[in-house]
């Protein structure tokens, strides 16, 4: 019984994902279907159309093992060895500089906007 419930939850998540893909396609949006799917599920939860109990066991299980799904994707790197050999230094520069600026940009702006917050450790 528990197993069947779990499978139904997976089916529901898959259905919303499918719907997200269809919606993105229908509206001609250059936005991934999984993004539309998240917004859709968030809206359905907020509107109370889908209660949390209908999806949370499957969602928690899949998210716990989310990293597993990334491995087959990263195996594609088999075909890309040359890129790192040829452009490694420039890629490293692009990644390091943009990451440092992202951290500082988000961090400073968020801290400045939270300056009135009483929980600030200062």
């Amino acid at each position: 019984m528990k197993k069947l419930q779990f499978l139904c939850q997976i089916a529901l998540l898959s259905g919303i994902y499918y719907l997200g893909n269809k919606l993105a396609l229908l509206m001609g949006l250059p936005i991934p279907g999984n993004v539309v799917g998240i917004v859709l599920l968030y809206a359905l939860l907020n509107l109370g159309i889908v209660p949390l109990e209908y999806v949370q066991d499957a969602a928690d299980f899949l998210l716990k093992h989310l990293v597993f799904f990334f491995i087959p994707v990263a195996v594609d790197l088999m075909n890309w060895g040359g890129v790192f050999y040829r452009y490694g230094l420039m890629l490293a520069l692009a990644i390091v500089i943009s990451t440092v600026l992202t951290f500082l940009g988000t961090g400073y702006l968020a801290q400045w906007l939270q300056r009135g917050d009483a929980t600030c450790p200062d």
Partner: peptide, 30 residues
Amino acid sequence: LLGPATVGLAVPLYRQRSLVRRHAPAIVAG
């Protein structure tokens, strides 16, 4: 199952909705 799993990210987002509302300006702008 990667797609359905990703859609599942709405669940923790929904559980934290009060936190989102409380810090909305910092979250959105940051």
